[in-house]
Write a protein that binds this DNA or RNA. Structure first.
Lengths: 107, 107
DNA sequence: GCACATTACCTCGTCATACAAGGCATTGCA
DNA sequence: TGCAATGCCTTGTATGACGAGGTAATGTGC
């Protein structure tokens, strides 16, 4: 079952940061990587991912560079130092969040 | 760390259904029960919970009754049969969601 | 008896955000 | 030559949690 838009809210940024720990990727490749890493569950649209990447760059968690390799115009994103730290916080927050929700749901 | 508004989106309904498996509760008590069961992490406001309870009742997952016991006017909510089924689905969805997000974040 | 916190309900407006829809340009393939 | 895929973008919409504000009764301390 594909993931619902509403349940994803607030959790997207961490996913984007996480997928970039494997090395820089351009936007389109980020979408594919998320799909691959989630077994197809995370089939995010461009209208979701591109604005989020812009936001993360604006916040200084990502840096981007235009690349004309292979003739095609691509914007390649990479994690900044601050982005790495933020990812650490995101992971901790997720553990806490998932623990809380899981506990209440199971009760 | 208290739970953020955005990350909770889409997950609240399941929590409300779950907290009512212990028996009927009125709205204010639902808020307290969630706080207690989450170790204080889920400190939800009335502006969050009351509309959600109304929505769930409108969807037929909860039923409510006015109670004047103790002189105080209270609306007591209980799970319907459909609500119980919906809770089962919510729990399954949560497992799937948490598994997917957790896997991508950890990768 | 009086002030004030607590219990208990409600609604309205605001904000953040995921997404659909639409547009543009290039490459590659049938 | 047409059409899919790659690759980028923006705008508008819907959703949903929350803050702020309102009402009223009960309980408590002085």
């Amino acid at each position: 079952m594909a993931i619902d838009a509403e349940e994803l809210k607030g959790h997207l940024d961490g996913l984007l940061l996480a997928v970039l720990t494997g090395g820089p990727l351009h936007g389109y490749a980020v979408i594919e990587a998320l799909k691959a890493r989630s077994g197809g569950e995370l089939a995010l649209s461009e209208g979701t991912v591109y604005p989020a990447l812009h936001r993360l760059e604006r916040e200084g968690l990502l840096a981007s560079e235009w690349s004309s390799e292979s003739g095609r115009r691509r914007r390649v994103y990479s994690l900044t130092r601050r982005g790495e730290r933020a990812l650490g916080e995101r992971r901790a927050r997720w553990e806490s969040f998932a623990g809380t929700i899981g506990a209440v749901l199971a009760a």
